[in-house]
Write a protein that binds this DNA or RNA. Structure first.
Lengths: 336, 336
DNA sequence: CACGTTCGTCGAAGCGCTTCGATCGCGTCG
DNA sequence: CGACGCGATCGAAGCGCTTCGACGAACGTG
């Protein structure tokens, strides 16, 4: 079943069928209808490889999955799904690469023209893949912002603003001492933008508002969260507001507070940074700053398509965080 | 940079270069070396589309991600990663399809020759995609076994045996009444093989050993797990052994037992069915039946490659479960 | 009314690779 | 010693599509 079969069936030339399909030249309504009919009747599907060869476009983009320790898998999956969905909406498919394939993988899929562009998730501040992406000659979009974003296209939540907005919310409620339960130390060690920027925003806003900030990196395992919370309550009894930027630590954190006899939000207010489900499915539902995975994935794809169409794109696209108040934050309790 | 450039540089014909690359004809060691050198020097990478067109092989397989409610995302991700890794080991890439694309997506990627074969995860007993796969004319491998597996190739853990082995282990330790904390009701409602087969094995083995079985489908939310455990302990005080076949319910289950003052394994023994990390990261580490995601993914890819090479493959490949004793099971406590 | 446009369509030339049959030496066997 | 076989290599014909230039017809326009 080839394009020439369709052409014969419709009584036109193969090129006409091609133009009907691509819309790159005007075709009379009557002819178009006839061709489309034939395509439907014959169940014609163009050969992807032939297309890619002739048009120099594979209609496929690559997505690099992040799989290092510390990554919250459901969030990564949400990104992946939103990228696939957005790509499909634009007639593109998605080729999956693992982190393990590394820069060689990027060079391979780009060099063989398997893909037209690349989306890289979980970009570190000093990401080894960035130089490769720069020299690749294939368009790419990063989710996350490296230290030097020159010549790149990056999408991210504005984590600095996210950190700030959390502190602002707590300060507004009267809290004078706030803690940030952060990512595991390993995440800071490999210098991840979203982690550092959240801290920066958290601390800056606290300073500006005369609030005392405290940053506590934290492993996600329940026991370690419990230990961290125990230490926090003991050593810093004045802390009445907590920001959590560590998805899997959220449930253990709430457990630990409960176990310590602290009511949320009666004694302690908690703000989470993470996907909505995380916040709504907790008990109590958490005031949170949304991690808009769908919007970010969609935006990344949109930017990549712009680059494929030779439009120029902003170097950095920061999505503004929104804080949704729920049941986990309240005014600071009066001092005893 | 094309194959003819390499040919010129090495002083041979393009076909010779092609044969060096594919190994489909014998090439003298000297020539091969010269060609390989040229390839390296020039940094030649063959054009994937041209290759696919000429050879009728894309060297890509499709993977359909499961994303329905009730799916444990980290497990799905483990499968995906193991499929990608195994595929890469065999010179293939992986195209990601979402469940949402449905059967149309399967027809599209097969019909356009984007992929050479398809791996479908999370197959239901009456999966709507099965008839499509049968008529597709493209090889496919299912992870999971549908009710009618005629003419298909399926890989799965032997969940019936998994259910049995758990009961056998508990019975061996002297437990006379055992409960299965199962999947959420919605999973049974859509008739999922792994869920039903585990129950079947669980009940059959119990019957054969004269043990009283009890099956409790269970939502994974902590509150619901707690409620289910509460009811279980109240209405069936004789239950001293619990099998959990529901990853996200494991932690809440242990919490609920602790809250009810039951020691594990002192008062109640617990066996989990799931990935190893789930078992080793719990407190106490759980006796468990491993869900060998890596082996299953690898096997699925291997079977698909066999089909691509026209070898015939068994309809059903069941992987035998292994029970690893850890700290959560012990002999039944003496009756008071 | 002749000429220039525009519109719709066609034909042919690739895109870069694989593969089949043919060719060319060269060693070997009868 | 000629025919034969075999290993190594080449040339050319596609694979199925897109796209460019060309062409005829229809349609204004001066």
């Amino acid at each position: 079943m080839r394009i020439s079969d369709v052409a014969r069936h419709a009584g036109v030339s193969p090129s006409t069928v091609s133009y009907v399909l691509s819309g790159k030249r005007t075709i009379s309504a009557a002819t178009r209808a006839r061709v489309l009919k034939s395509i439907e009747v014959l169940g014609y599907q163009p050969h992807a490889g032939a297309r890619a060869l002739a048009s120099n476009r594979a209609n496929v983009i690559a997505l690099v999955l992040p799989l290092r320790p510390g990554i919250h898998v459901p969030v990564a999956m949400q990104f992946a799904v939103s990228v696939v969905t957005s790509a499909r909406d634009r007639e593109h498919d998605v080729l999956l690469l693992t982190q393990a394939e590394g820069e060689g993988g990027l060079r391979r899929v780009a060099g063989t023209s398997m893909v037209d562009g690349i989306i890289v998730m979980d970009v570190e501040l000093n990401d080894a893949r960035v130089p490769t992406l720069r020299t690749l000659g294939h368009p790419s979009v990063l989710i996350g912002v490296p230290a030097d974003s020159h010549g790149l296209t990056c999408v991210d939540l504005d984590f600095d603003a996210a950190g700030r907005i959390c502190v602002a919310h707590l300060a507004h409620l009267g809290h004078r001492e706030v803690a940030l339960i952060g990512q595991p130390p390993s995440v800071y060690r490999r210098r991840t933008g979203f982690a550092e920027r959240t801290i920066a925003g958290f601390e800056d806003e606290a300073r500006e508002r005369g609030v005392r900030p405290l940053v506590v990196p934290c492993e996600a395992a329940p026991a370690q969260v419990a230990a961290a919370v125990g230490a926090l309550l003991r050593d810093h009894p004045g802390v009445s507001g907590i920001v959590v930027h560590n998805e899997p630590a959220v449930a253990p954190l709430l457990d630990a507070l409960r176990a310590a006899g602290r009511d949320v939000p009666g004694d302690v207010s908690v703000v989470a940074i993470g996907p909505d489900e995380l916040a709504t499915e907790s008990v109590p539902p958490l005031t949170s700053v949304t991690l808009p995975t769908e919007e970010m994935g969609g935006r990344a794809v949109a930017l990549l398509m712009d680059k494929l169409a030779d439009a120029d794109t902003p170097e950095i696209t920061l999505i503004q965080p929104r804080l949704v108040p729920r049941a986990s934050t309240a005014a600071r309790p009066a001092l005893p």
